[in-house]
Design a protein around this nucleic acid. Structure first.
Lengths: 148, 148
DNA sequence: CCTACAATTCGGCATATGACGAAACGACAC
DNA sequence: GTGTCGTTTCGTCATATGCCGAATTGTAGG
């Protein structure tokens, strides 16, 4: 009996993992397959230390697992009982969100670029031609006119 | 178009509702049917203001709905899209937890007692013969010897 | 109208969370 | 070994959360 049944505390840890927009976005990205930390950091636009913290929270909740390859670290969705039970319905709902859709679109293009190239560009998505120049705010404003 | 699709923010609000043991216990109790605030307060053993706060968080996440009857307020599980999607698998896992089982057992006996009688007893489960005298700590210690 | 009372909201404190930059930690390259 | 670089951990701060008791609200009932 190495695999104990999930406990109330386990469920709380897992739920805490879901209770932040950045972490839900991370899960949404990972739903498309494993990703390197730097790729997720580039998409979220947060400090890498912050992203690492978020991934740590997700890991404590069993929602993600990691794999090291050289100096890079890749994360994937967790495979424990709680994750397998809770994630599918949640990811289905998340898939409808506009932000999550945008993230996936970005990730899709990011997968075409070698990871080390992204790192070399200091995680600047624009520099490697994956994202467009620079809108005023991070929402989804249809480009009307450019800045003169 | 009155029913918008769930948003990233909605999912965060819902997840926050799940991210606390007391709130998961509340959901576990409500899975057996609607309950009065005072009944849940008695089982949790927290201040009624605290329980009210927790229920408010659950309500913001669409996880519960309320119904007023006289001076009492009854809560039940929410019926929105997110709740219907996320709750069933979660409650299935929660059902295995010992604390949740104990809560359900208590609730089952509590349903035999008129709500106003519970209130009149100041939410004291022992006074109305629903719970046993008074163990040292709130776990599930098999009663060995009584206090001399 | 006034009282009683279940529930909620408010005011306060203690702790937890989330953000960043700085420093520490591997794993490769030289 | 020394350096470089991706990632994590640490230190610090601002804000959010959880708890309680006190005050407030709303609904019977006297």
């Amino acid at each position: 009996m190495t695999k104990r049944h999930p406990d109330l505390r386990d469920l709380v840890e897992t739920s805490k993992g879901l209770a932040h927009p950045a972490r839900l976005r991370l899960l949404g990205m990972l739903a498309t397959g494993e990703l390197c930390v730097c790729q997720m950091t580039a998409v979220l636009g947060l400090a890498s230390s912050t992203v690492s913290q978020h991934l740590s929270v997700l890991s404590r909740g069993g929602l993600v697992a990691d794999r090291k390859e050289g100096k890079l670290v890749y994360y994937r969705l967790g495979e424990g009982e709680i994750a397998k039970t809770v994630l599918p319905p949640l990811l289905a709902l998340l898939g409808e969100d506009e932000q999550a859709k945008a993230d996936r679109a970005l990730i899709e293009r990011l997968r075409e670029v070698p990871v080390l190239e992204l790192c070399a560009a200091d995680l600047d998505l624009v520099a490697i031609g994956v994202a467009k120049p620079a809108p005023q705010h991070p929402g989804t404003p249809p480009p009307r006119g450019a800045t003169p």
